[in-house]
Nucleic acid binder design. Sequence first.
DNA 1: TATATTCGCAGGTGCGCATATGACGATAAT
DNA 2: ATTATCGTCATATGCGCACCTGCGAATATA
Lengths: 121, 121
Amino acid sequence: MAASERVNSRQVKSREPADRHTEDLSAEQVDAAVTTFGLLADATRVRILWALRDAELDVATLAETAGCRPTVASQHLAKLRLAGLVVGERDGRRVVYRLQGAHLRSLLTEALFHADHQVSG
Amino acid sequence: MAASERVNSRQVKSREPADRHTEDLSAEQVDAAVTTFGLLADATRVRILWALRDAELDVATLAETAGCRPTVASQHLAKLRLAGLVVGERDGRRVVYRLQGAHLRSLLTEALFHADHQVSG
DNA sequence: TATATTCGCAGGTGCGCATATGACGATAAT
DNA sequence: ATTATCGTCATATGCGCACCTGCGAATATA
């Protein structure tokens, strides 16, 4: 970012989430959304998250489903885990991952539905 | 899951969107979603798109809103236009942009609501 | 004048590779 | 029987390298 960036001084603080959609965006909100979008901007991660949409799977299974090597899947899962999008639980030698929160699920559905519209439209 | 599951041959044509969410993802679908996510993985573009959520604005206004220079805003708008997320119409010397399709709107709302949850949670 | 396009550069990211950590099973020594 | 050691499988991590992307500056176009 340039040093002379005009800071969007939004001092509105206490608003209901009901009319949040009318509000301007806070920097943290944009940052969080951008981070999530950035993580979703990868085919392998999308396939991994989609596989985790309705199941808890280990790294090897996710790798096979996503069509990548377990090492690569592990790297992606580490990023997703650090971002709080997934959680992993040890089960013996394996680690079983699952989605964190319901928002991501609906977000994925919405996005891929939108994508399907774009493809066939 | 056996080892012999590979290319999602896209022969399923007539499916209801209702059980689409149970389907496997096609490569084109993933590609389209990843492209969209990639475009949304930028703070300036998110702010631009959010500003276009319920209004039609020109480049200068969008630049001021997004906190960037008009040149930069134009570059972002060019990408968004090429991807079909926005459309621009000439109005004299200016070009007025607007969102294309309702899916993007709901996707933005969903994502930023998710982001807001992450921030305050 | 307002937008658009092109080019060059710095920064970020995914992948392949090698390696480390951790857990389970088997086997052998005490 | 206990435990110590080895080997292996599953996952995680660090490194180097191409590749992509956003910004700035200059230029073109309407």
